[in-house]
């Protein structure tokens, strides 16, 4: 089984590493950016869907 895995790993090395690196770059970048956002901004964004509720909450 291990032999099988090692054998097949030969020609995918660059792909696996490339994929992993790009993923982690993007993942870490999105986390970093998200935590740079100000509290007001996040709060504003969170409430965007709820803004027209005043006219709608009477139903259902």
């Amino acid at each position: 089984m291990y032999k099988y895995i090692l054998e097949s790993a030969g020609n995918i090395n660059w792909m696996a590493i490339f994929a992993l690196l790009t993923f982690f770059t993007i993942f870490l970048m999105s986390i970093w950016l998200v935590f740079r956002d100000s509290k007001e901004y996040i709060q504003k964004m969170e409430h965007l869907p709820l803004e027209d509720d005043a006219t709608e909450s009477t139903y259902s």
Binding site: I26, S30, V34, F35, I42, E46, P49, L50
Partner: peptide, 29 residues
């Protein structure tokens, strides 16, 4: 879901930050 669930529950999404990370990770993977 990110629009109608907060509407129906009448409260903002649990974590907007999580939704952003979720977005970039999901479409990439």
């Amino acid at each position: 879901m990110y629009y109608f669930l907060p509407k129906a529950a009448n409260r903002p999404v649990y974590s907007y930050k999580l939704s952003i990370i979720d977005f970039w990770a999901l479409i990439f993977i």
